[in-house]
Amino acid sequence: MATLNIGADDLVDNPTPRVPVSLCLDTSTSMSGSPIEELIRGVNLFYDAIDEDDDAHDSAEINLVEFNSSAGLIHDFASIERLQRISSLTANGSTAMGAGVNLALDTLESRKATYSGSGVLYYQPWLVLMTDGGPTDNIDLAVKRVVEMVEAKKLTVFPIGIGSGADMKTLARFSPNRPPLRLDGLKFKEFFEWLSKSVSRVSRSTPGDTVKLDLEGLAGWAEL
């Protein structure tokens, strides 16, 4: 028998499959004060929780899209190792939610193309939409894109209403499979803790796994 001498060069070191997560955040004027401060704390806590989870740490790639009078990319997709924690967000202007969601979807499509081009496997992308109000631009195209992708099982979407002023009927248009969530007060911390655990579940899944999101875990701090 030939000597079984298998070195590192004989094996393939494939990259971990990725979970792209786009956080699409309302930074309009109404978010100023405590809401935006709590949101920043929540996002940073989300980053910390992903960092500490063995599975999500290697899989999650996160970008941050904001929308106020227009939409903009705060930072592009990056692994948790490369993500700087957020020190501030400025709340001003109106609520261009349609533009924000369209930008988030564009970045997700672009990221998937990057993965495909470099032979990196990936899981279904996630879009987290958080707002405390209603849209001031046309959201029809954004709704159509999201609904088509969700129904084709190509996107998981979490529309989140912040406080009592959130337009839940509008958010419901983005979520054909489950009702949107309304945060109880400003409990961003609890939501982002739950979100990081959910990302971890997905990153542990293997073919055939049905990833059941622990929606009951939201009870007490969000209305389903």
Binding site: D10, N14, G119
Partner: peptide, 28 residues
Amino acid sequence: DGTAESLFSPRTGELAAACSKLITAVGT
């Protein structure tokens, strides 16, 4: 698929060189 993480590259669509050694080891 678990084994393929070490013995197959989705990027190149090729098997790892170890496969040749494994087949030879079994054959000999």
